[in-house]
Design a protein around this nucleic acid. Structure first.
Lengths: 221, 221
DNA sequence: AACTGTGAACGTGTTCACAGCC
DNA sequence: GGCTGTGAACACGTTCACAGTT
C-alpha cells in the first residue's frame, strides 16, 4: 500500500484533524468535500490539505473533491486507528486516573485496559472498567496482553523505572506526561506532553504580545 | 531590555527545558555550564543551545561557559515566570480537577486560584486551596481578580461559551485541553493540547516504525 | 467551471564552521 | 585548549501557481 518514506510530524497531526472533520461530514451526510472546505475547518490552506493527502495517494477527483467516506476510511487506516487499541496507564494519581477515564480516548478507539501504581493501597481499585494493578507486574502484564500503547503519568522520579518496565514488556509507544524524558531504546516511540512547558510557553506569548492585563497582582481597574 | 522582534515557538519551548536544567544545576551547586552540557540534558546540539540563547543576548563567557545562576534568572524573566501567576481552571471534571492540583504547575509559579463549573452541585467544593465557582461568574471574577491565565478543560460543546466568558473577563491566554479550537480575538493567546491527537500521532509512529507488537489482540507468543 | 495533484519558489528553523575571547 | 557567538550553508515544511481531469 501507500507507505511513503517519511512523513513529517506536522502532517500526521493535521491528518488527525482532517479525520475528525470527515467524521463530522460523514455524520451530516456530505458525500464529497473540497480541500478548501477541509482547510477552513482546521484553519489551514487548501494547498496544505492537498499536499498532506497527496503524500499517501490520490484520494480526490479533479473538479469534484474528495469522497468523504472513502477518505475518512483511508485516514483511519493510515493513522492506525482502524481497530480498537488497548492501552495501559502507569501512575494512578489524579492525572493518570483522569486520563484513564478521558472520554475522547475511548471515542477514538483507545481503551484503557489497566492502570498500574506502586501504592499497594490503590491496587484493586477500579477506574472505569480498568483495575489498578501493582507496578511490579507491568512487564508481565503488558507482554501477556500484547499491549502496545502506554500512558505514563507518574511523578518524575518514578518515570524512568516505569518506562523500563514498559519496555521490558515489549511496549510499542509511550505517551509521556511526566516532567522528564525517559530513556528508551530507539525502537520504542515516545511522545511527550509537558504541561508546564505548555503553560510557560503561553506565559511567554502573553507577555510578548500586548502586556499582562495586570502585571502586578490584585489590581482591578 | 532584550526584546527581539520575533522568537520562534520551538525556541521558547526549548528555553523552558534549559530553565529546568539550570534549576537542577543550580541546586547541585554547579557554577557554570557549557552549551554542550545543556544540549545533552535536552537531547539537542550545542549549536542549537547557543543560537537559542543568543537571540536574547550574550549570557556566556567564551572559553568558560554560561554562569548557571545568572542564566537561570535571565530565562526566568524571559519566560515571564519570575513572579507567581494566578490562573483559573474552567471545567471541574476529572481532567480539570487533575490539572488544578497538578504539582508541577505550582512548582513553576502557577497557582490555581479558582475553578468554574456549570454544575451547581459541584459549586462550593474545594480543589486544593481553590473553590469551584459557578460558570456564569467567570467574566466578573476573572476581571476583578486580574487573572491572565486560564486552563480550559470543559467538554467540547461547552468550550466556546467558556472561552467567550474568559475573553469577556479580559483573559490574556488560554491553555486549551478541549477537543475544539475556540474562536477568540487575535489579542488572546490560545495554546491547544489535544490529547487524542497526541495518541493518534503516537499510534501512527508505532505502526510506521516496526510493526505493532501484536496487530491482532490477545496474541501472546 | 470546479477542483485536484504537484513541481517550483519561498520562508523558516537547524546545523556547520570558524572567528573571537578567556 | 575550551567554549561562545554568529554568518553562511543546509534541510524542511509551506505556499504558489498551473497543468491536468471531470
Amino acid at each position: 500500500m501507500s507507505s511513503p518514506r517519511k512523513v513529517s510530524e506536522p502532517t500526521v497531526r493535521r491528518l488527525s484533524t482532517y479525520y475528525r472533520t470527515l467524521e463530522d461530514l460523514a455524520a451530516s451526510g456530505q458525500e464529497t468535500v473540497s480541500s478548501g472546505r477541509l482547510a477552513d475547518a482546521g484553519g489551514l490552506t487548501s494547498a496544505q490539505v492537498r499536499k498532506d493527502l497527496s503524500v499517501f495517494g490520490s484520494f480526490g477527483v479533479r473538479g469534484r473533491g474528495y469522497p468523504v467516506l472513502h477518505l475518512r476510511d483511508a485516514l483511519k487506516g493510515i493513522l492506525g486507528v482502524d481497530q480498537d487499541r488497548p492501552a495501559v496507564v502507569v501512575g494512578a494519581g489524579r492525572l493518570g486516573t483522569a486520563l484513564a477515564s478521558y472520554p475522547n480516548f475511548s471515542a477514538r478507539g483507545f481503551h484503557i485496559v489497566a492502570l498500574f501504581d506502586v501504592d499497594p493501597a490503590r491496587v484493586g481499585e477500579h477506574v472505569g472498567d480498568a483495575e489498578i494493578l501493582p507496578a511490579d507486574t507491568i512487564s508481565d502484564w503488558v507482554r501477556r496482553h500484547g499491549v502496545c500503547l502506554a500512558i505514563l503519568a507518574t511523578p518524575a522520579e518514578a518515570a524512568q523505572e516505569a518506562a523500563n518496565r514498559l519496555v521490558a514488556g515489549g511496549i510499542g509507544g509511550i505517551l509521556n506526561f511526566t516532567a522528564t524524558t525517559p530513556e528508551v531504546p530507539e525502537s520504542v516511540n515516545v511522545r511527550s506532553v509537558n504541561l508546564s512547558i505548555e503553560l510557560e510557553g503561553l506565559c511567554y506569548a502573553i507577555r510578548e504580545s500586548g502586556l499582562w492585563e495586570s502585571d502586578r497582582e490584585g489590581g482591578a481597574s
